[in-house]
């Protein structure tokens, strides 16, 4: 029986300005991971799509744009499950609210019928279950208007974020296959 863990890397976004950050990040990863059979890279517009893609996934990375936060970092790594604890029951659960606040404007993105990323992750936890490890990579942006180009600051942050995630993926692979 294989002990290879299946990894899904999902880029959330839209064609509008810095909201392309999630897509840009995962496309860079896809370009550099095309030999890795254990990695699936997908892009999506709405978080609900995630629910259709979780079968047999052990590790989930979600890359998404967020609004600027008061820090010097231009992208942020959030370990969903370790932050949530082992079980999320509903959106009144204090830990979910806490995470929602912490992720701030990630929750402002509204998917189909108001299911944002936080809601979708909580829903997955309550029904089909989440993968063993879930990490959200939030890339800061500032302009999300239709027709906008992605800003250079956000483009750079997306590249840096992708490279950081690639480094982690490679390190994990090296640990399994020293």
């Amino acid at each position: 029986m294989s002990d290879t863990k299946r990894i899904l890397i999902m880029g959330l976004g839209s064609p509008h300005g810095d909201d392309q950050a999630g897509w840009l990040t995962v496309r860079r990863i896809a370009d550099r991971c095309d030999q890795r059979a254990d990695i699936v890279v997908r892009t999506a517009v709405i978080p609900m799509d995630l629910l259709d893609w979780l079968d047999d996934i052990d590790i989930l990375h979600v890359c998404d744009a967020c609004q600027r936060m008061p820090s010097n970092d231009r992208y942020h790594r959030i370990d969903w499950k370790s932050r949530q604890g082992s079980t999320v029951r509903n959106d009144n659960h204090p830990s979910v609210i806490s995470a929602g606040r912490e992720m701030n404007l990630l929750t402002q993105r509204r998917g189909s019928h108001d299911f944002g990323l936080v809601e979708v992750l909580a829903l997955a936890e309550a029904t089909c279950g989440l993968p063993e490890f879930v990490t959200i990579w939030a890339i800061e942006g500032s302009g999300f208007q239709p027709g906008d180009e992605i800003s250079e600051v956000t483009r750079t942050a997306a590249v840096d974020c992708a490279d950081k995630l690639l480094t982690e993926l490679q390190a994990d692979q090296c640990m399994k296959n020293p």
Partner: peptide, 18 residues
């Protein structure tokens, strides 16, 4: 209050819907 809250009470049914 939400589908998530419903899922906590009826995980099998909501999962079937998904």
């Amino acid at each position: 209050a939400s589908g998530i809250e419903l899922a906590a009470r009826f995980p099998k049914e909501v999962n079937r819907g998904l």
